[in-house]
């Protein structure tokens, strides 16, 4: 009898904590960070470092001033920092990424209640804020290892210069002008596979998102392969459209979310005035998430009718 002992629930514990999940995401982002270094040089590491440092500092100070407990150990600030840095061009001034990073943590996450309470992905919202504010510097892209600014593939497509697109291998490996983390599709897919294996993300949203853009670009007569390999699509679909607190929990919800993101991305890329639509699409769908969840939540079996 002495072998039996009484304890309070929970009785089954998993090793899954927020920190664990965030650590996995950081590991999954490492290939992209390395790729950004190889393609764009040391400055990209500087950008990542500045972004992460500002995010961590912002969260520390915010929690201090608002008398909340310190949440730095959950590494979510680090993830936001890395994600935001990967979303900017290599020539962005450091103070600007610091501003964006601080905005992401303080305004989009902190002011709404901290992790889990944010209404939109902090990195996406901050990137949009930076596009609005620093429109000039956020749209100057360099061909890797060049100092001359050049157009991104999406800009070429929307300008009708499709013949000038780099060939598919270059697009896959990231040898074209764009933001430091979004160009190397190989690195991003590696990270995505890692996350799938570790069961951090499920396949529903990324597949729905990328699939919609792929199929849609056939319909809207845009080059499909170029569309999915360029722009922030892979980065957004794998790392930001799968954010826990801002995307639906249910499987069908995730599919709807991915589809919606893909559709809006296509519409903005084809008919909007921005060549890149992923950020706005994800933000828009983030805002719709509560309704998608409500719509797709499964009814408990045998539950009483209201």
């Amino acid at each position: 009898m002495s072998q039996l002992f009484i304890s309070a629930s929970p009785h089954i514990r998993s090793k899954n904590t927020t920190t664990r999940v965030m650590l996995d995401v950081i590991i999954a982002l490492m290939p992209a960070v390395v790729a950004s270094f190889l393609l764009f040089g040391g400055r990209s590491l500087l950008l990542v470092a500045t972004s992460v440092a500002t995010a961590v500092l912002a969260e520390f100070l915010f929690n201090l001033i608002c008398k909340k407990e310190n949440t730095l150990y959950d590494l979510s600030a680090v993830v936001t920092g890395i994600l935001l840095a990967l979303n900017v061009p290599v020539s962005l001034p450091l103070w600007q990424i610091a501003v964006g990073s601080a905005f992401a943590i303080i305004a989009v996450k902190g002011l709404f209640g901290g992790i889990g309470q944010n209404f939109a992905n902090p990195a996406i919202a901050a990137r949009i804020m930076m596009i609005l504010s620093f429109g000039g510097t956020m749209s100057v892209f360099h061909y890797p290892a060049d100092t001359v600014a050049s157009a991104t593939p999406l800009a070429m497509i929307s300008g009708g210069a499709e013949r000038m697109l780099p060939d598919t291998l270059d697009l896959f490996l990231g040898r074209y002008a764009g933001c430091i983390g979004e160009t190397c599709s190989l690195a991003l897919i590696l990270g995505g596979v890692y996350l799938l294996i570790r069961k951090v993300i499920s396949w529903h949203t990324p597949v729905a998102f990328i699939g919609t853009v792929f199929v849609g670009s056939f319909i809207f007569s845009m080059p499909p392969v170029a569309e999915i390999l360029t722009g922030g699509l892979l980065l957004g679909a794998i790392f930001m459209a799968t954010d826990y607190s801002t995307t639906p929990i249910t499987k069908s919800g995730k599919l709807i979310f991915g589809f919606g993101c893909g559709l809006i991305t296509l519409l903005i890329r084809k008919w909007g005035s921005y060549p890149e639509g992923v950020s706005f699409a994800i933000l828009f769908m983030n805002i719709l998430t509560p309704y998608i969840e409500k719509w797709t939540v499964s009814k408990p079996l045998g539950g009483a009718k209201k």
């Binding site: 103070w95 609005l132 504010s133 620093f134």
Partner: peptide, 11 residues
């Protein structure tokens, strides 16, 4: 050189 035009805009 350090203005953040975001603040003068609507959002």
């Amino acid at each position: 050189n350090y203005t953040i035009p975001f603040f003068t805009q609507a959002p």
